[in-house]
Amino acid sequence: MKVNIYVTLKPGVLDPQGKAIHHALEGLGFAGVEDVRAGRFIELEVADGVSDADLDAMCAKLLANTVIENYRIQRA
């Protein structure tokens, strides 16, 4: 089974990469972009028995750094 993990910076944590992407979009002439924040998307292929608690532990222990990042788990 496929599981999608979305790792995003917590609100309030500055995102210099997002800012650079924002500038680049403006440089390409795209108007109306008000803010950009970059995150990480991780796809897992897991066996049926893997529980939600297991997935949560994977995120908390490795996939996200909870000092600066939030994560969201979505079973596809």
Binding site: P16, A20, N65, V67
Partner: peptide, 17 residues
């Protein structure tokens, strides 16, 4: 050390990139 939780905080991409 920060990733291992032996020190607080995190080290992010330099502000100037």
């Amino acid at each position: 050390l920060t990733e291992a939780g032996l020190l607080p905080g995190a080290l992010m991409r330099n502000a100037g990139l």
